[in-house]
């Protein structure tokens, strides 16, 4: 990343290759909308280029990247007034060969995640999917790692509530 600071824009292309899929998935899990997610990924790399002077090696690349991602998401959501994509917009991922019940259940879990309030959803997405350690999440959200863990637990409880609302039954 220091090389991008030095003006070597080609390095950004390498960073893109390494990280864009991960960032896309973060946005997809946060918004539920593919087009928005692709736009957001573009925005993140654009900002990484424009704001490369703000990168400080001592703070870690991943944290910097996710900070930019969160800000981009917040900016977009402000414009869209925090809507989440309606269930009808979501085409749904490719189906692996699984029994119908398993599939349906996963679908409900996914929808439950999308229905969580953004702060809770983000905690689960960052900890479950993006491979961030609690210390990194704490740095990103500017709180203590202990607080992150408590909030993750509460977010899981909230997820369970929403799942129950959607399905009328307990998660197995």
């Amino acid at each position: 990343m220091n090389a991008v600071r030095g003006g070597d824009e080609r390095k950004l292309a390498l960073l893109f290759e390494r990280h864009h899929a991960k960032v896309y998935r973060y946005f997809l899990r946060m918004t539920g909308n593919r087009q928005w997610s692709e736009d957001l990924v573009q925005e993140v790399f654009y900002r990484m280029l424009k704001y490369r002077e703000t990168y400080r090696p001592e703070h870690g690349f991943t944290t910097w990247m996710y900070r930019i991602a969160r800000n981009a998401h917040i900016d977009q959501m402000r414009k869209r007034k925090w809507e989440v994509a309606m269930e009808e917009d979501w085409d749904g991922p490719a189906r692996a060969a699984q029994s119908l019940d398993d599939q349906q259940e996963l679908e409900f879990v996914r929808l439950a995640l999308l229905r969580l309030p953004p702060e809770k959803r983000e905690l689960l997405v960052l900890s479950r999917y993006q491979g961030l350690k609690y210390e990194q999440i704490a740095e990103l959200l500017e709180c203590e790692p202990g607080t992150v863990k408590v909030r993750v637990f509460r977010a899981m409880q909230a997820l369970r509530e929403v799942f129950f609302e959607l399905t009328g039954r307990k998660a197995s």
């Binding site: 899929a21 998935r25 692709e38 259940e105 996963l106 879990v109 995640l113 479950r128 899981m156 369970r160």
Partner: peptide, 21 residues
């Protein structure tokens, strides 16, 4: 539930994303 969260299939973006980048 945590396990199930992890079982939701991953996706990749369309080739347009790279082209636009």
């Amino acid at each position: 539930l945590w396990d199930k969260l992890g079982a939701i299939p991953d996706e990749l973006p369309s080739p347009r994303l790279r082209a636009n980048f």
